[in-house]
Amino acid sequence: MKADRVVRRILFYVLISIIAMAAIIPFLWMLSTSFKAREAIHTIPIRWIPKEPSVEAYTQIFKLSNVNFVRSIFNSFYVSIMLTIIPLLTSAMAAFAFAKLEFKGKHALFSVFLFTMMLPGTITMIPNFITLKTLGLLNSYSALLLPALCNAFAIFFIRQNMMRISNIYIEAAVIDGASLYRIFWTLMLPLTKPVLFTMGLFNFMGAWNSFLWPLIVLSNRNKWTLQLGLGNMGTQFGNYQHYLMAGSLISIVPIVIVYIIAQKYVEEGLATGGLKG
């Protein structure tokens, strides 16, 4: 009976390790290729550990004439941090109004926000491009930021959390003479830290990985994010796979670090319904 259980346990680990291998082999392949020299990538049979490891790819991708890779990394950090914090603040503000303030048409307005979650992005994409072009905001990061100020998903989840906060706190603060702005800043925001953190992570990862919208509004190479630079490298250097793999690796590392540090929050955030995939 006991031996049976041990065998089962071993079988379980074998099986789950096979699945885990399937998940990481493409990453190992990326890693291996990125440390090969140009001739070594087009050699059969495949050598997982290159005979003569080379950092050629890692030095060359920073010297490309048509993709400024260093700059695109910097841009990506800048854009992602901006798109994490500012939409989070505007969503929390709206969530506060929906959770704790009374006004006419509250439910109708909230439903309109929820409706935007069902609206395919392809419908709004073209008009928004025209709007931003008319405002002269193409090739500026405002073009990424402004549409993100309306984030129904974040408003919904932050509102749910704020509704759980007892009104007694708010009433006590009002009696002490605190304004609503103060209550929002010093009471509501600190009390909803976990959900703000989860949504912030969600925004950061979304901004870091986003591709289509930046592709549409940022045509100026100096404004490109890492994903745009990488995508462009893909078409320009199709046969320099070691470049592409080195670039991919660099683009993945920051997000993996964020994930490992905040594993619980990332998984929670995605499981609660980051249904956009």
């Binding site: 990453f27 990985n209 990488l230 793999m245 991919s248 683009s251 993945i252 998984e267």
Partner: peptide, 21 residues
């Protein structure tokens, strides 16, 4: 869990380049 989840958090651009290769 981390291993299973790595592909999910990676960007589509990187994943597409890796798979193309």
């Amino acid at each position: 869990k981390i291993l299973f989840y790595l592909p999910v958090i990676s960007s589509w651009v990187a994943v597409a380049l890796i798979w193309k290769w």
